[in-house]
Write a protein that binds this DNA or RNA. Structure first.
Length: 273
DNA sequence: CGGTGGACCTGCTGGC
DNA sequence: TGCCAGCAGGTCCACC
């Protein structure tokens, strides 16, 4: 479900609402998501204050004044909402962080591909449990020379490559298709065959697409929504994703759907070479 | 090491 | 109406 813009949208909302809140209780309703929930450790954070909200890759980081950080990954179907403590929990509401002011941060995740961890960051805020994370796509570190040098001699399709979180973080299935369309690069193109010029274009386009999506509050297709339940507006700006059989907005040719790395991939066979 | 395919889950949709 | 295959925005692991 959530790629970088969706996680950033959630982070921005939480940043406005959570800092200063005190944890009054923690309720868990399942044993494990992708990994077991750190139930005991979470209970120990009762009385901790929320200090700050960060995002790294597709991880949401909630810093506590205990010196620990709550890490949340939304997987495919995870959502976070800030609700009143009177709102009854429903099926798949796996975690409630209840605050002293009567509000509740509620995590729901039907497919349970998400992740909830509690960790102690290092001096510079980095989190060892997350391992070595690739550069942020919106950082200066992610540039044409970086992509070009990493890509030499690689035979995997470029779409798989930009979705590989070990190369650059945050780009998922929707924004990969959208970025390649705007760059006029075919998603099946072997990564190592990209020219430096194409790398320059692709890097700039990824930054552009992600930035626009953040501004729009992310993309809502099925169940993504903001912390207040609102929908992301970027779905109206999708040019190829989910558009198989429709005319290409550039040239009118029929948008095709193929499978790459097990994921649906949309592109215009005429525009993208 | 690089690349591919399946596994992990539940829910919704579309076709029969 | 009902059933079932297929598919969903992400990782992770085994295998070649």
């Amino acid at each position: 479900m959530p790629e970088l813009p969706e996680v950033e949208t959630v982070a921005a909302a939480l940043r406005r609402q959570l800092p200063g809140k005190r944890i009054a209780a923690v309720v868990t309703r399942c044993e494990k998501l992708r990994q077991p929930l750190p139930i005991t450790a979470l209970q120990k954070e009762v009385n901790s204050l929320i200090c700050a909200i960060r995002r790294r890759a597709k991880y949401l980081l909630i810093d506590l004044n205990s010196g620990r950080t709550l890490i949340i990954h939304l997987g495919m179907s995870g959502t976070l909402r800030l609700v009143s403590e009177n709102e009854p929990a429903q099926r798949h509401d796996h975690l409630d962080i209840k605050f002293a002011d009567g509000t509740v941060l509620r995590y729901r995740d039907p497919r349970r591909f998400g992740l909830i961890l509690l960790a102690t960051p290092g001096a510079s805020g980095e989190i060892a449990e997350l391992g070595e994370l690739a550069p942020e796509p919106l950082s200066a570190e992610f540039n044409a020379e970086y992509l070009f040098s990493l890509s030499r001699k690689r035979t995997t399709p470029i779409k798989n490559f930009i979705m590989d979180q070990r190369r650059v973080v945050g780009v998922g299935n929707i924004y990969a298709s959208e970025s390649l369309f705007r760059s006029r690069i075919c998603p099946t193109c072997k990564t190592g065959r990209l020219t430096l010029r194409q790398c320059r274009l692709l890097v700039a386009t990824i930054k552009e697409v992600l930035s626009e999506a953040i501004t729009a509050g992310g993309t809502t297709i099925a169940d993504f929504h903001g912390v207040d339940g609102s929908e992301g507006a970027f779905f109206r700006k999708l040019l190829v994703y989910g558009q198989a059989g429709e005319p290409c907005p550039e040239c009118g040719a029929v948008i095709e759907k193929i499978v790459l790395g097990g994921r649906s991939t949309f592109y215009c066979p005429k525009c993208q070479k």
